[in-house]
C-alpha cells in the first residue's frame, strides 16, 4: 500500500468533515420520514359519512404472516351503523410486538380500512399494552398508548418525534406538528443542518 492510497483515503475522510451530517439528533430533532414509511396502523373512516371503512372481514388477519391481527365481527344496527353494510368489526386488535410492519394487511384490505401510518414510537412497559385495539388505531387518535398515557397525566398534548408528508391513503390523518419547537425546548428550527424540515413545515 503506497502513500498515495493512504492520502486518498484520508482525503475522503477529511472531505466528509466539512459536509452536512446525514444523522440527526433524534429525539431532540424530529426524524424525517418518507411518506411510505410503514409505522403504526390507522383505521380510516369514510370521508363525509364518517362511518368506519372496516367491515370486519378478517382478510387482514388471514394475510398477516405474523398472526398479529385478531378481528371479531358483529352485525350493524341499521339505525346507528358503525360501517356501511351489514357487518362491522366489534373487536379489532393488532399485537404490535408481533407485527413486522410488512403491509400485507393493507394490501389485503378490500375497503382500504387498515393503512400503515408513520408512527413508530411504540415503546411501552408491559406486554399487554402492545395490543392495540380499535380505539388506539382509529383515525384521529394520535400517538402510541404510552404517549397518550403520558399526555393524559401531564396534561400536555402528544408529542411526535417525526415529520412526514402524509400519503393520501391515510385519509384524515394529520400528524401533529412538533410542539417542542414552540415550547422552545428544541433548537431544531434554527438548526442549519436540517433545512428540509423548515421547508416542509412552511
Amino acid at each position: 500500500m503506497g502513500v498515495m492510497e493512504i492520502a486518498k483515503g484520508m482525503g475522503i475522510t477529511l472531505s466528509k468533515l466539512f459536509q452536512k451530517p446525514v444523522t440527526i439528533c433524534y429525539p431532540e430533532q424530529p426524524a424525517q420520514l418518507k411518506a411510505r414509511f410503514r409505522g403504526r396502523h390507522v383505521l380510516t373512516r369514510h370521508p363525509g359519512t364518517g362511518l368506519e371503512k372496516c367491515i370486519g372481514c378478517s382478510l387482514c388477519a388471514a394475510a398477516c404472516p405474523a398472526y398479529a391481527i385478531y378481528v371479531e365481527a358483529a352485525e350493524n344496527d341499521p339505525k346507528s351503523p358503525h360501517s356501511p353494510g351489514e357487518r362491522y368489526a366489534s373487536v379489532y386488535e393488532i399485537n404490535m410486538l408481533r407485527c413486522i410492519f410488512c403491509g400485507m394487511c393493507e394490501e389485503a384490505c378490500p375497503t382500504g380500512a387498515i393503512v400503515l401510518g408513520n408512527e413508530f414510537e411504540l415503546a411501552d412497559y408491559r406486554y399487554g399494552d402492545f395490543v392495540y385495539g380499535k380505539e388506539d388505531m382509529m383515525v384521529g387518535t394520535q400517538g402510541s398508548k404510552l404517549q397518550r398515557r403520558e399526555a393524559r397525566t401531564s396534561g400536555k398534548p402528544v408529542v411526535m418525534g417525526f415529520e412526514v408528508s402524509v400519503r393520501e391513503e391515510l385519509e384524515g390523518v394529520k400528524y401533529a406538528p412538533d410542539r417542542r419547537v414552540s415550547d422552545g425546548e428544541s433548537n431544531r428550527a434554527s438548526n442549519p443542518a436540517n433545512p428540509e424540515s423548515a421547508g416542509r413545515k412552511a
Binding site: G56, C57, S58, A61, A62, E72, A73, A74, E75, R87
Partner: peptide, 9 residues
C-alpha cells in the same frame, strides 16, 4: 353463527 368467524378461522 352469523358473523362469528370466517370459514378459515
Amino acid at each position: 353463527s352469523r358473523f362469528r368467524g370466517r370459514n378459515w378461522e
